[in-house]
Computed example of a mutant assay.
Amino acid sequence: MVDTCGGRNAEGWVPVERRWLGLDRRSLTPTIMVAAIAVLLTFVVPLIDRAVPQDDPIRAGERLDLGGGIVVTPPAGWELESGIRVGDKTTVPVTAGTADAAFSGDG
């Protein structure tokens, strides 16, 4: 029989031997793991992202190949994030409708 009035046999009651600072010891390991992952995603990953340089500026007159003879000329000084420059050697040929390009500016 389960005593629901807060007695020693109440469901959810944790004996003092399994508590640390008033917390159930069984829940500390998962809590610490979740906190470590949160710290990793909040502080460590952005720190690594800022440490790795992403510097691939587009020079004046450079064009990006979108496949099928379609090219785009982004503004000079912007950063190329993904895409293939016209004249770059690639292992996979670019066909129409399969290529894309991404570039960004300061604004």
Rank of each mutant, 00 (worst) to 15 (best):
T98E: 10
D88F: 07
N9K: 03
M33L: 15
I48T: 12
P30W: 08
F103N: 02
R50T: 08
G105A: 06
V39G: 08
D55W: 11
G67F: 02
T91N: 07
A51P: 00
A76W: 07
T91W: 05
P93V: 07
R25L: 14
G67S: 05
G68M: 11
G6E: 05
P30F: 06
L23V: 10
L23G: 02
T98A: 14
P15V: 04
A36Y: 01
D100N: 09
R8A: 09
F43C: 07
M33H: 12
K89W: 01
V92F: 02
G12E: 05
L40T: 01
M1K: 04
F43W: 13
V2Y: 06
G105D: 02
A96P: 00
R63Y: 02
A102F: 05
T29K: 14
G83H: 04
D3H: 08
A51T: 04
V86I: 09
R63W: 02
P93S: 13
V71E: 12
V39K: 06
R59S: 11
A38L: 06
W78T: 03
D106N: 15
L64V: 01
R19D: 03
T73S: 15
A99V: 00
S82D: 09
T4F: 14
T42V: 03
T90K: 02
L80C: 03
T4N: 13
P46W: 09
L47I: 04
P30V: 04
